[in-house]
Simulated assay, not measured.
Amino acid sequence: MSEAPQEQEQPLISHLVELRQRLMYSVLAVLVIFLCLFYFANDLYTWLSAPLTALLPEGTSMIATDVTSPFFAPFKLTLVAAICLSMPYILHQIWAFIAPGLYLNEKRLAIPLLLSSIVLFYTGIAFAYFVVFPLLFGFFTSVGPENVAIMTDISSYLNFVLKLFFAFGIVFEIPIATMLLIRSGAVSAASLASKRAYVVVVCFIVGMLLTPPDIISQSLLALPMWLLFELGLLLSKIAFRKPVGKETEQESES
Rank of each mutant, 00 (worst) to 15 (best):
C36F: 15
L221N: 11
V119I: 15
F75Q: 03
I170H: 10
E106F: 01
L223K: 07
I216R: 07
E58W: 05
F165V: 09
A222G: 03
L228G: 05
T152K: 02
T178G: 04
D43M: 10
L91K: 03
L35H: 11
V32C: 06
V201Y: 02
K237F: 15
T60V: 05
T68R: 06
T46Q: 15
F229P: 06
L19K: 01
F133S: 13
K76A: 10
P74K: 07
A149N: 14
L115F: 05
I205A: 15
Y129L: 05
N159R: 04
L162N: 06
A54H: 11
A222D: 04
A82G: 02
Q93T: 11
P134D: 13
I216G: 13
S219R: 03
F133D: 09
V200A: 10
M151L: 02
Q6D: 14
V67P: 00
K242C: 02
F172A: 03
L109A: 08
S155W: 10
T141W: 10
L233V: 08
F140G: 01
I98F: 00
A189M: 11
M208F: 12
V30G: 00
P224E: 14
E173F: 08
E9N: 08
F97Y: 01
I150D: 03
P112I: 12
G101F: 07
Y39T: 10
Y25P: 02
L56K: 12
T211S: 05
L12G: 03
P74F: 07
E58M: 09
R196A: 13
V206F: 11
P175S: 08
M225C: 06
K107V: 04
P70Q: 06
P100C: 04
T152G: 13
P5L: 02
M62C: 01
K163R: 09
L19T: 08
Y129D: 05
L12M: 12
A239K: 07
F40W: 12
V32K: 02
F72T: 13
E249Q: 11
G101M: 03
S117I: 04
V32P: 10
S117Y: 05
L102C: 04
F229N: 07
P243K: 06
S156A: 15
E230D: 13
S117M: 06
T60S: 10
A82Y: 07
S86Q: 10
P51N: 11
F72K: 04
M225Y: 06
N147E: 14
N147W: 13
L109Y: 04
F166E: 11
M179T: 00
S156V: 14
P51V: 12
F34M: 14
K237D: 14
N42P: 08
A190L: 01
T78E: 05
G101R: 09
I150A: 02
H92D: 07
M1E: 09
P51G: 03
E251G: 04
V27E: 00
V119R: 00
S117K: 01
S254F: 14
T65R: 01
E3M: 06
S116W: 07
Q8H: 09
E7G: 07
E173D: 00
I33Y: 03
L114P: 06
F139K: 02
I238T: 12
N147M: 15
L79T: 08
D66Y: 12
G232V: 15
G185F: 15
A189I: 06
M62A: 08
T178H: 06
E9P: 00
I150Q: 13
P134Q: 09
